[in-house]
Simulated scan of single mutants.
Amino acid sequence: MNYTLNQLRVFAKVVENESVTKASEVLHMTQPAVSIQLKKFQDQFEIPLTEIIGKRLYVTEFGRTIAEIAKNILSESEALQYKTKEFKGLLTGTLRIASASTGKYVMPYFLSAFSTSNPNVNLILDVSNKEHVVQGLKNNEIDFALVSVLPTDVEVHEELLVENKLFLISSREKIDSSKPLIFREKGSATRMAMDTYYGEKSRQKSIELTSNEAVKQAVISGLGYSILPLIGIKNELSNGELHIIPTKGLPVTTQWRLIWLKQKKLSPVSEAYLDFLRNHKDEIIREKFDWYDTYEHV
């Protein structure tokens, strides 16, 4: 048997995505290149790893077993890359974090100094909606997740960071009731907050968009109004493009928190990052998020 690490990597991604097309996108390879590597890997086994039924790719039971072994080999291979530096006393490895979309305004501030102090640590930060972030955590694809609402169907540890305040936002100082209410897509924490706030009230006209950035731009344009996290609209409030509308029951306040699986064995890099976070988070909050207080009693 003469497989390559690249073949293992390709096969693992094909299995993970159950699609050559999606695997090629993730790997930044062409579909033919992925198919060639998949065939070369398959040629080394007498038992099928995958099968095509109709136009859909299915992974066989044997294929899933081989995929697990492939992931372990890739993990060990990654560890080998860092051993020389470890013997020199340098912290090395990869820190994988997934963040709910609005967390992109939060997480970088809690990573910057750690990354600067540990130049041999690779950082992967994936930004998506809450539903996808939590799924990545459940699948043990990441070390930590940044969320504003705790998942209820998985046991996690947490480290609290900063508050997440959501206000009613408009491009004018008063709400134009003829304009529609703009929602995030289902599965996002902002959408959950809006659904909780508005309950079953009738919404004759509404718009649904797939990111807070898209919602923000729609509100700025005068398309409608929405409830948005304060953390993502600092500049727009300062230059007058957006206005907070004082409203009974608002802001909705949650808490940004870093979470990880209770049963997960943390890597040395993950342990080091947690130590850094616990020692420096108060200082980071004072330096980077003191402007929050300006809008405490809007």
Rank of each mutant, 00 (worst) to 15 (best):
N164Q: 09
K186R: 02
F167P: 13
R172I: 04
L181I: 11
I175A: 07
L168T: 10
L166C: 13
I169H: 02
F183Q: 01
D176R: 02
K179V: 01
K186F: 01
A189E: 09
P180C: 03
T190A: 10
S178L: 06
I169D: 04
L168Q: 11
P180V: 02
V162C: 06
R184T: 01
L181N: 03
R172F: 15
E185N: 05
S188F: 00
R172C: 07
S171A: 09
N164H: 14
S177R: 13
I175N: 14
I182P: 03
F183N: 02
N164I: 11
L168D: 12
S177F: 13
A189S: 11
G187P: 01
L168R: 11
R184N: 15
I175L: 11
V162Y: 07
S170P: 06
A189Q: 06
P180Q: 05
L168M: 11
S171Y: 13
E185P: 00
G187N: 00
L161C: 09
E163V: 15
L166G: 11
E185V: 01
V162N: 04
R184P: 04
S188H: 02
L166F: 06
S178R: 10
K174A: 09
G187W: 00
S170K: 10
L161P: 12
K186W: 00
E173W: 12
L161S: 12
S170T: 06
L181Y: 07
S188N: 01
S188T: 04
F167S: 04
E185W: 00
K179A: 14
A189W: 03
E163D: 15
E173C: 12
V162D: 05
N164K: 15
L166W: 06
K165H: 13
T190L: 09
T190S: 15
L161M: 06
V162P: 03
I182Y: 04
L166A: 13
T190I: 12
K165Q: 12
V162H: 05
P180R: 04
I175V: 13
L181H: 06
R184Y: 05
P180K: 02
I175C: 13
L181G: 04
F183D: 03
K165V: 05
S188A: 05
T190Y: 07
K174D: 08
V162L: 11
S170E: 15
I175W: 07
N164A: 15
R184G: 08
S188V: 01
T190V: 14
S177L: 13
E173R: 13
L181S: 04
L181W: 06
S178M: 14
R172D: 14
I169T: 05
K174I: 10
S177T: 12
F183V: 00
S170Q: 14
K179G: 04
R172H: 11
R172G: 09
E185G: 03
S188L: 01
K179F: 01
S188E: 00
D176T: 03
G187L: 00
K165R: 10
E185K: 10
